[in-house]
Amino acid sequence: MQAPVFPAEPTQFPLTDLALVRLTGEERAKYLQGQVTCDVNALAPGQSTLGGHCDAKGKLWGDFRLYCLQESLLLQTRASLLARQLPELKKFAVFARVDIQPCDWTSLAIAGTGTDAWIATEFGLSDTGLTPSGMAARVAPDRWLLVSEQDPALALPQASQDLWWALDIAAGIPHLEAAHQGEYIPQMINLQALGGISFTKGCYMGQETVARAKYRGASNRALFVLAGEASATVASGDTLERQLGEHWRRSGLVLNAWQQDGQVWLTAVLPKDTEADALFRLKQEEGSRLHLQPLPYALDD
């Protein structure tokens, strides 16, 4: 199956599907530490991590990337999540010296052969770190995210953000949409395998459920990457069916999808014990066929 084509040179992708929330105030780290799955207190300025924001039952309001700046924290997530997630994030802020507001900083991605060298020349960074107007986070070889207070006006060719999201899909990186809020615990989208959960940081919203899933094996679903053929438009929330003998049975929901020339790559939450040779189709297109692809990281509890 043809994978998304990696750019042949450093290319910028304006990430207009993302939103940024800025936390300021002297208790910003302390407050966020009690709300999310990642260890906020462990971050120094110039460091970044993935994380999840759960309700009291451990179900996700959203996943995010967190950037630690000198005077603030930036939480980057899908814009579609904010209507429900932001009020929940701010719910207890009145009791702490913290201010939580959406901000209009720029979110960009850069990917392509030679991007690591380009970043080193442009910003003097070999790994995630501060830039003059924000931060740059290295998510994989030759793949970077940038957040900037001003538009950096980079002298690079520009491409659609769809290809960036396709590269994330192939890498098994999840992005919840509004349709999935309140459906999954963090382990169901593999946040533990991506460094987005700390099991030693102490209490936070939903922590009891997340810990139970690790230590008692309470999570029986996980994120998988699938690829195949489909002509109909595939969207987040579409139903996947798995072949069992002569029949097809509902198996899970599409998380993120990318399509081109009749080919589709997608992520989906499926039963954790799904066999590697399992065959899937989209419920709305009986002629579609999808196969599991290897995850580029180890999957554990």
Score class of each variant (00 low, 15 high):
Phe6Glu: 13
Pro7Val: 09
Pro7Lys: 06
Glu9Lys: 11
Glu9Trp: 02
Pro10Trp: 03
Pro10Ile: 01
Pro10Gly: 01
Pro10Leu: 04
Thr11Tyr: 10
Gln12Pro: 02
Phe13Thr: 01
Leu15Asn: 04
Asp17Leu: 13
Ala19Trp: 03
Ala19Asn: 04
Ala19Gly: 09
Val21Ala: 02
Val21Phe: 11
Val21Arg: 08
Val21Pro: 08
Arg22Lys: 14
Leu23Asp: 02
Leu23Asn: 08
Leu23Cys: 03
Gly25Met: 10
Gly25Arg: 09
Gly25Gln: 10
Glu27Phe: 00
Glu27Asp: 14
Arg28Gln: 08
Arg28Ile: 02
Ala29Val: 09
Ala29Cys: 14
Tyr31His: 04
Tyr31Ser: 01
Tyr31Arg: 01
Gly34Val: 12
Gly34Phe: 13
Gln35Pro: 05
Val36Glu: 07
Asp39Cys: 12
Asp39Glu: 14
Val40Lys: 07
Val40Gln: 05
Asn41Trp: 09
Asn41Val: 07
Asn41Arg: 15
Ala42Tyr: 06
Ala42Pro: 06
Ala44Thr: 15
Pro45Gln: 11
Gly46Gln: 12
Ser48Tyr: 10
Ser48Pro: 03
Ser48Cys: 15
Ser48Leu: 02
Leu50His: 10
Gly52Met: 09
His53Arg: 11
Asp55Ile: 07
Asp55Leu: 07
Asp55Ser: 08
Ala56Pro: 00
Lys57Glu: 07
Lys57Ile: 00
Lys57Ser: 06
Lys59Gln: 09
Lys59Asn: 03
Lys59Val: 00
Trp61Ala: 01
Asp63Met: 11
Phe64Ser: 00
Arg65Thr: 13
Arg65Leu: 08
Arg65Tyr: 10
Arg65His: 12
Leu66Asn: 11
Tyr67Ala: 10
Tyr67His: 14
Cys68Thr: 14
Cys68Met: 13
Leu69Val: 06
Leu69Asp: 08
Leu73Val: 05
Leu73Met: 06
Leu74Asn: 01
Leu75Trp: 10
Gln76Met: 13
Thr77Asn: 08
Leu81Cys: 07
Leu81His: 01
Leu82Thr: 06
Ala83Gly: 04
Leu86Ser: 11
Pro87Glu: 05
Glu88Ala: 15
Glu88Leu: 03
Glu88Phe: 01
Lys90Val: 11
Lys91Phe: 01
Phe92Gln: 12
Phe92Ile: 04
Ala93Asp: 09
Ala93Phe: 03
Val94Tyr: 09
Ala96Lys: 13
Ala96Tyr: 14
Ala96Gln: 09
Arg97Glu: 15
Val98Trp: 07
Asp99Thr: 14
Gln101Gly: 00
Gln101Phe: 02
Pro102Phe: 05
Asp104Pro: 03
Asp104Glu: 15
Asp104Gly: 14
Asp104Leu: 13
Trp105His: 14
Trp105Ile: 00
Trp105Cys: 09
Thr106Met: 02
Thr106Lys: 00
Thr106Arg: 08
Ser107Asn: 12
Leu108Thr: 05
Leu108Met: 07
Leu108Ser: 05
Ile110Phe: 01
Ile110His: 01
Ala111Asn: 10
Ala111Gln: 11
Gly112Trp: 03
Gly114Thr: 02
Thr115Ala: 14
Thr115Asp: 02
Thr115Gln: 02
Thr115Leu: 04
Trp118Val: 02
Trp118Asp: 00
Trp118Gly: 04
Ile119Gln: 06
Ile119Val: 15
Thr121Ala: 15
Glu122Pro: 00
Glu122Trp: 01
Glu122Ala: 10
